[in-house]
């Protein structure tokens, strides 16, 4: 793909110096997004879709402008519940991951339990959380946490459990305790796994918070979209989706950036292969 862009760049470089100065690889995500919106707009026009079924992007952007104040408030609420749940998931996931990865016995005993827990659709837990905590922010935060901590646990535990036996032998022969091996090798080694899992976890956290807001809250994008839907305000539903996409991309990009900053070595060394 980059080769194609290169030849395109070169072809245009001869004709227009301005075009040559654009970094097409960098620009590609924006161009593709614009193209998607344009295609969507054209499709709605061509098929003459009513806005109650599929509103055109122009319609959706108009809705965003019109309802900006509630959209902004609810977006912040969703971002808040998601990051809260995610933050708890990071702390708890790291702790549980370290605990599980500590010994082969704990790993063997708890792993099936974790798999079983992960297989439960988290939306099924929302009613229980509502019974315990009432509707609102708390069940949304907890659902975001419950759905996103699993990949963190698994990744951290795997990083610890896959220490090369030779490395362990070298250190044990020097008199290293389990704690030394964890601090010197296990934890640094599991960091790329940990930071890698954050990208997955943050995306899942959005799923959890929005699901919970949809069924059990008076705030947040999930709630806004479900009430908009009951009023047949379809452009507003799509406006909510768009805001979710924007928040999701922003948080994902942040996690990817953190990952690169913290574990640059893993991308160059053989471990990343």
């Amino acid at each position: 793909m980059s080769a194609m862009t290169d030849t395109a760049t070169q072809a245009k470089a001869a004709a227009k110096p301005l075009m040559a100065r654009i970094n097409w690889v960098k620009a590609a995500p924006w161009l593709y997004t614009l193209a998607l919106f344009a295609l969507w707009e054209l499709l709605v026009m061509a098929l003459d879709m009513p806005p109650t079924i599929l509103p055109a992007p122009s319609n959706v952007f108009a809705a965003i402008a019109k309802y900006w104040s509630p959209i902004w408030k609810n977006s912040l609420q969703t971002l808040y519940t998601t990051t809260m749940g995610f933050a708890i998931a990071v702390v708890a996931g790291l702790a549980i991951g370290l605990f599980i990865g500590w010994s082969k016995t704990i790993y063997a005993g708890l792993y099936p339990l974790m798999i079983g827990f992960n297989a439960i659709p988290k939306v099924a837990l929302v009613p229980i959380l509502v019974i315990w905590f009432g509707i609102g922010t708390v069940p949304a935060v907890l659902t975001a946490f419950l759905i996103s901590f699993f990949p963190i646990v698994v990744n951290v535990a795997t990083g610890l459990a896959t220490i090369e036996p030779e490395t362990e032998d070298v250190l044990r022969a020097l008199g290293a305790k389990k704690m030394d091996i964890m601090l010197k090798v296990g934890i640094p080694r599991s960091m790329p796994y940990f930071f890698g899992s954050l990208k997955v976890a943050i995306t899942l956290a959005f799923v959890g918070s929005v699901v919970s807001e949809t069924v059990a809250s008076n705030y947040g994008l999930g709630n806004m979209m479900s009430s908009a839907q009951s009023q047949f305000n379809v452009p507003l539903v799509f406006a909510g989706l768009l805001m979710l996409a924007v928040e999701g991309i922003a948080m994902y990009a942040l996690m990817a950036w953190i990952e690169r900053r913290m574990t640059g070595w893993a991308h160059r060394s053989t471990m990343a292969q």
């Binding site: 090369e164 030779e166 010197k184 640094p188 080694r189 893993a266 053989t270």
Partner: peptide
């Protein structure tokens, strides 16, 4: 009866820590 630290070891696989 336990690991002796007057010993140094090296294996076929160098096991250097990449970080």
């Amino acid at each position: 009866t336990k690991p002796v630290s007057i010993v140094g070891m090296a294996f076929q696989n160098p096991t250097m820590l990449p970080w």
